[in-house]
Design a binder for these strands. Sequence first.
DNA 1: ACTGAAAGGTAAAAGGG
DNA 2: CCCTTTTACCTTTCAGT
Lengths: 149, 149
Amino acid sequence: MIDNLDKNILNALTENARLSYAEIAKANRVSPATVHVRVEKMRKAGIITGAKLSIDPRKLGFDICCFIGIILRQAGDYPSALEKLKALPEVTEAYYTTGQYSVLIKVLVRNIDDLQKLLIERLQVIDEIQSTETLISLQTPIQRTIQAT
Amino acid sequence: MIDNLDKNILNALTENARLSYAEIAKANRVSPATVHVRVEKMRKAGIITGAKLSIDPRKLGFDICCFIGIILRQAGDYPSALEKLKALPEVTEAYYTTGQYSVLIKVLVRNIDDLQKLLIERLQVIDEIQSTETLISLQTPIQRTIQAT
DNA sequence: ACTGAAAGGTAAAAGGG
DNA sequence: CCCTTTTACCTTTCAGT
């Protein structure tokens, strides 16, 4: 399926997506054309889905990161609740989960006031939501990508 | 601090980090060199922290994504617990949080067996950890970056 | 399937308004 | 502060092995 060269290319690019194919090629003693072919192959296979710039949300004024565990009234409420969550730009991630909560979302907001408004005026008014539990993230000490092995 | 051009560049690149400066320049009716200067400025300011390849973990055999809420025995246990969590490659994210849990981690594993082994043999044996609660993510319907506004 | 060379395009640096 | 120009490098393609 994927060999060592593929893995090395993936691991190099997941660290730094703007690394040139030429440099990766040199490190792996192959030609830049080969790196190009491999990347295209993995893109077509759906292994590589894109490349995103990493930005520091705090530098853009989003000082608060938190997770909100959402408990829905009924399991069947999930699709319509999701549509309403998608409409909130502060919600950057959502996970449909088993366990404690039905949905776990990650939100970025500018300050505590914005968080409070989001919770009271835009989340808790959603009919499908029974209750929410907020976990404010004080620090993000680990942030990395899975290594291809 | 940052103007509209900066914001447009950020939003374009957060969507697709391999977009060429020439294309961004054309869309904003400025020269490619200007885009380059702005990007460098934002990199030096710490707004842009890097670029990462997005990959599909399932295509690499990591079929299970879950969040684990960790309750520590004592608040002071955090630094040493964190070091032990960093040593586990399956832990891709960690958040130090207020509320329900002390630490929330995101883990990627290949299958249920690996999850069970991780929980029992490598997490619950950590002295600083009092208890854990696992939320298995069945689906990730929202995954996006904050928009600069 | 990889390589090497060729063509086109892009990034980065320098100079001018 | 932004533009144009320039140079060097990079990506991408294709014929050949």
